[in-house]
C-alpha cells in the first residue's frame, strides 16, 4: 500500500523530469541539425519558471478551469501507463480507459480557449479536432491489432506477454510502423504543428495564454510527450526495467526528431489525407493479419 502511494507520487515527477528533458533535448537537437548552437537543455524549465512568475490575463472561470482540467487529465494518465514495471493504477483502468483519458487534455484546452472568444483559438480547436480524427484512425487500428493479438485489453498483460517472449514489434511490424508514423501528429510537432501554427493562427489555442496558463500548458506538453512515447514503448517494444525503458523512449524520441526536424508544416487537409492513407492502410493490414492468425 505504502509502495503504491509512493509510486503514485513519484511517477508523475519522473514523467515530468523526463518530459522536460525531452523538450530541452528536442530544442538542442533541432538546433544542431540547423547548425546552430542551441539553448541549454534546461531552457524549457527556465521558460516555465519565468512564466509562473509572470502576470497574465484571464477571460473567466472556465478559462482557468479548462487549463487545470487539461493538466490534471495528463497527470493521472501517467499513473495508468506502466513505466518500467511500475503502474500504480493499472488495475483500475485498461487500454480502453487510457484511450478515453487521453481526451481530457484536449477537452480542457478547448473549453478554456473557447471562453477566450478569439477566432484564432476556435480555428486552432477545429484543427485539433480534425487532426485528431485523422490520426485516431491508424492509432485505433494499431491498438486494436495489439489487443487482438494478445487477446487482452490490459496494458500490463501486454507488457508481460512481451517480456516472456519476443517484442510485439516483431509480430506486428506494420501497426508499429503506423503508430510511429503518426507519433508527430499526436505530439503536435512538425510537420503536424498545424494546431499551434504560430505564423498562421498565432499559436492557435494558446493565443490568449500568458504567464501561468502557458506554464501549465508547457508542463502538460511535457507530460504528453512522455505519455505518447511510453505507450509506444509499452505496446511494441516490450517495456523493460526503469533504465531500459528510458533508453527505449530516448531512441524512439530521437528517431522521430531526426525525421521531423527537417520537414515543413503540412496543411490540415494534407495531414488528414496523409493519416488516412499510408499509416491507416499499414495499420489495417496489420490488424487483418492479427485477426486471422
Amino acid at each position: 500500500m505504502i509502495i503504491k502511494v509512493i509510486s503514485i507520487i513519484v511517477l508523475p515527477l519522473i514523467a515530468l523530469i523526463i518530459g522536460f528533458f525531452f523538450l530541452g533535448l528536442s530544442r538542442k537537437v533541432i538546433a544542431r541539425i540547423h547548425r546552430r548552437y542551441g539553448p541549454p537543455i534546461s531552457q524549457p524549465l527556465i521558460d516555465v519558471i519565468k512564466l509562473i512568475n509572470q502576470e497574465s490575463i484571464s477571460h473567466g472561470k472556465l478559462f482557468d478551469m479548462g487549463v487545470i482540467l487539461s493538466l490534471a487529465g495528463s497527470v493521472i494518465l501517467v499513473l495508468f501507463i506502466p513505466f518500467g514495471g511500475i503502474a500504480p493504477l493499472a488495475t483500475s483502468g485498461d487500454l480502453l480507459v487510457i484511450i478515453y483519458l487521453m481526451l481530457l487534455a484536449p477537452l480542457g484546452v478547448a473549453l478554456s480557449g473557447g471562453e477566450a472568444a478569439n477566432p484564432n483559438v476556435s480555428i486552432g480547436i477545429s484543427r485539433k479536432m480534425m487532426l485528431a480524427l485523422g490520426y485516431e484512425v491508424p492509432f485505433l487500428f494499431s491498438l486494436l491489432a495489439v489487443m487482438t493479438w494478445y487477446k487482452t485489453t490490459s496494458l500490463v498483460e501486454v507488457v508481460k506477454a512481451q517480456q516472456s517472449f519476443l517484442w510485439a514489434i516483431f509480430y506486428l511490424p506494420l501497426p508499429a510502423v503506423a503508430y510511429f508514423m503518426i507519433l508527430p501528429a499526436m505530439l503536435g510537432i512538425r510537420p503536424f504543428d498545424i494546431v499551434s501554427a504560430p505564423q498562421e493562427i498565432a499559436s492557435g489555442t494558446a493565443v490568449e495564454y500568458g504567464g501561468r496558463y502557458l506554464a501549465l500548458t508547457t508542463i502538460q506538453h511535457a507530460f504528453h510527450i512522455f505519455i505518447d512515447i511510453a505507450l509506444f514503448v509499452n505496446l511494441f517494444l516490450g517495456g523493460g526495467n526503469l533504465l531500459t525503458f528510458f533508453v527505449k523512449m530516448l531512441v524512439v524520441f530521437l528517431l522521430g526528431l531526426f525525421i521531423n526536424a527537417v520537414f515543413p508544416r503540412l496543411r490540415i487537409d494534407q495531414a488528414i489525407k496523409y493519416c488516412w492513407k499510408w499509416p491507416a492502410i499499414l495499420a489495417l493490414v496489420g490488424l487483418i493479419i492479427a485477426r486471422i492468425i
Binding site: S56, G60, V75, A117, N118
Partner: peptide, 22 residues
C-alpha cells in the same frame, strides 16, 4: 495539486471578452 500550483503562481488580471489579441 494543479490548482495549488495555479493559484500560487503570479496572479492574472480579469479582462473583458473583447480585449483580444487581434
Amino acid at each position: 495539486v494543479v490548482y495549488l500550483i495555479f493559484s500560487l503562481s503570479a496572479k492574472s488580471r480579469r479582462v473583458n471578452q473583447d480585449d483580444n489579441y487581434a
